[in-house]
Design a protein around this nucleic acid. Structure first.
Lengths: 162, 162
DNA sequence: GCACTGTGCTTGCAACAGCTAGCGCTCGGG
DNA sequence: CCCGAGCGCTAGCTGTTGCAAGCACAGTGC
């Protein structure tokens, strides 16, 4: 495999034997990359999965997050270890909480689990109607997540358009 | 004042007039340092005050925290900006929560005292974006409850009295 | 064919984080 | 006096982070 800049070459080699060899080398390299990513608690893979489920390109996220797109690419592939400030910016671009990324990056402990329904009912700052509305939305979100992946993008697209 | 390494020289100059001038220059320098520290939300000053109230020397804290003592000195004086990992180590040495230092450093928002927020963040059945949407609605409901006149007294006043 | 726009990635570099080696100073003991 | 232990800090160095410039590739329209 020749050293090429930019996109990796297509696996369509000139001959089948060469092509098979190229594919095997590529798999070894990919597995090494995955091992590196997992060694840092896979924050890069998590960012990529969030980005893909939001159907946003790497460049678009880099722009909304305010980081360079090569650097975001390196982060997603586990080649670099971003600071908390960068994670904060990426979270802003993904419209998720920075805390979620901090937990994945290992700089913040995951909060103990507690029940949303009980907490909403017990909250003294909400009216009863507001509690019901919140819980209706909560339940509909959970129903969406119980459905097959086919229904996932259809709910995500309206948010993406906003 | 000659350029000296290590500790600053004692203000006991050879003459009173010289001594007074040295003190005034020293105060100006100190005030400039304080301004720099405040520009980064005074995480350095906060660490120093925690260390002093624990009656621990800079070297002792550096040792228990596992960071170099010159670096801890620079952090306290606002000359360097520590990463979250270093803050985590310093928090361990001070026996305080890392979250407290993250908040001071500006990489973590101070948590609203709410069980609902915790519960939503911890819920494994929601995606990160759904969590954020739910919490945005929750916060806007609470803001509405701060202005009962807007939504009409018939729904708000009974709950408000409770 | 071409040019254009978009995609994700490579490469090299500057700035910064964090460290080591060492400084001057204070204090206490011999 | 000396020495040792402790104090906080300076200066120089190395490795890492985050970036800009640029690459190859894919898709679209003329």
């Amino acid at each position: 495999m020749p050293a090429s800049k930019g996109m990796p070459p297509k696996p369509e080699g000139p001959g089948e034997r060469v092509g098979h060899a190229v594919e095997q080398v590529g798999q070894v390299v990919e597995q090494a990359g995955i091992a590196v990513g997992q060694a840092v608690d896979d924050i890069g893979g998590y960012i990529r999965s969030q980005r893909e489920s939001a159907q946003v390109s790497l460049r678009q996220l880099a722009r909304t997050a305010g980081v360079s797109n090569p650097y975001l690419s390196q982060i997603e592939r586990g080649l670099r270890k971003p600071s908390a400030e960068i994670l904060q910016q990426i979270a802003k671009g993904l419209r998720i909480s920075a805390e979620a990324l901090y937990v994945k990056a290992g700089i913040l402990d995951e909060k103990p689990a507690s029940d949303v329904t009980d907490a909403v009912f017990a909250d003294p700052t909400l009216t009863e109607r507001q509690k019901q509305v919140l819980l209706d939305i909560y339940q509909s979100f959970r129903r969406e997540n119980d459905k097959p992946v086919v229904l996932g993008p259809s709910t995500e697209l309206p948010d993406h358009e906003e």
